[in-house]
Design a protein around this nucleic acid. Structure first.
Lengths: 250, 250
DNA sequence: CGCACCACATGATCCAGATCAATTTCGTCA
DNA sequence: TGACGAAATTGATCTGGATCATGTGGTGCG
């Protein structure tokens, strides 16, 4: 399934192309050892988990799982960017966030997915059978902490997002979104200003609770003001200072 | 501390006035045994927890804890309604929610409170020292599950709230808020339509990301349309059907 | 008692963003 | 390469909620 057509090109957190195997102790090569969910585990725990993980590949635009389906697996994102969204009863689509490397997808104690996920660019993920994951938890109480903290972080993010949506202005919202996006791709040493993904404006709109038109116009304004550049393959951040200033402004 | 001036009158989930003691195995009398956080615990776990809990009383309008302070205790609400809020960098106040009986306040694995809480009406709470709580967790892995699920539920709520804030219309937002409030006080058998708390309109506004004026006008409209009545001591729900209909509407 | 303060209420005006309507890329596939 | 559908872009208008302003009722306190 999900044959890998797009080879390497767009792997953002390029990790040196290790020899991937189906069941790899891939943690050795994984840059995520120290970030996100996995970053909170001990060496042994990582090895333990890795033993039962499967490496999943997901081409751009493919769906990983759908809201409402039974949760038979949970995932940790290794590379790529995923779009997470819900369908609301009134038909609206609410993008609840974008998953970046290190993020844990789905809640292992829920029987059903409460959101859908698909890839914006092609992605690699570690896949765990839900029951396996739960038995890991039972075996090693320390893991519970990692899970709770992970969920709690999602909670904090969701609250931040809520505060953002409450705001009036379009510019602060879009600016904030861009900054978050930038952070997702920011690496410690690397002052890279280019984010190599193309997020559809419709997604941004559904994420920020505004219309495509407004998103578009706002982005256009940012471009005109030389704050960013939008190229075919990504966004170039020219003036982070100003972007931050805009994001702060009520 | 927090001498109890207002005696009983406004205890919503009136639980038959058991003989409260400082260190009570109050669970026996607590209607929450089967709801919220405590509801997910076994009998033994409840006893264990109760042994180290302290009953805290909080008068209306008093502050339980403040954002940024060190988290030395966590709480479970027994009765009353609390307002939870954050101060944002831009000065705005964001009400992140209202805690009702059964809700767990604060995250025991965080060293600092990430929000403030104070009582809308007078409240009773079970108080735990954070370190005690953590040692409970370590002792009994099952508790971890209860914690994770609790946090996850908060996450779901936060997401729902986010979706709500994204909406345009004022009426759906206010309607949704009223329904949530109603649920908080809904008891299984009881078709009570009166919610005996007075939530300041300013809080509703800061919760829904709108201005007091709009909240006021919207409420006024609901009253005019005989959907609710607002009395001195609470809100009377006259037409839940219509309220739900309004809440659904995009 | 009267004053100050605060939550609530209501009217008048303004404006940012939604909505409606075209047109122009762009990506994909035959 | 050409054609078709989706996404992006741009313009014109409309409108609901924000803003500004002012008034009222209640309540605590000197």
């Amino acid at each position: 399934m999900t044959s890998s057509r797009e080879p390497s090109a767009r792997m953002p957190g390029d990790m040196g192309k290790p020899p991937f195997t189906e069941k790899s102790r891939a943690c050795d090569y994984c840059e995520l050892r120290n970030r996100g969910f996995c970053g909170r585990l001990t060496e042994e725990q990582q090895v333990l988990l890795a033993a039962r993980s499967r490496l999943a590949t997901l081409d751009a635009h493919r769906t990983l799982f759908r809201q409402g389906e039974e949760t038979d697996h949970v995932y940790v994102v290794r590379s790529g960017l995923l779009r997470l969204y819900q369908r609301l009863r009134d038909g609206r689509r609410q993008v609840i966030g974008f998953a970046k490397p290190g993020d844990l997808l789905l809640f292992p104690l829920s029987a059903h997915n409460d959101y859908s996920a698909d890839a914006l660019d092609s992605a690699y993920l570690c896949q765990f059978r839900r029951e396996d994951f739960i038995s890991f938890l039972r075996r090693d109480p320390e893991l519970w902490g990692a899970l709770a903290i992970s969920v709690h972080e999602d909670l904090l993010r969701a609250r931040r997002q809520g505060a953002l949506l409450g705001q009036r202005g379009a510019e602060p919202k879009v600016a904030q979104f861009l900054l978050t996006l930038h952070e997702s791709y920011g690496r410690p040493n690397n002052e890279t200003t280019l984010v190599p993904v193309r997020v559809p404006q419709a997604d941004i709109a559904d994420f920020l609770g505004m219309t495509v038109e407004t998103v578009n116009r706002t982005l256009a304004r940012f471009v005109r003001d030389a704050i960013i550049t939008i190229a075919k393959r990504g966004i170039d951040f020219l003036d982070l200072r100003r972007l931050k200033a805009i994001a702060e402004s009520s």
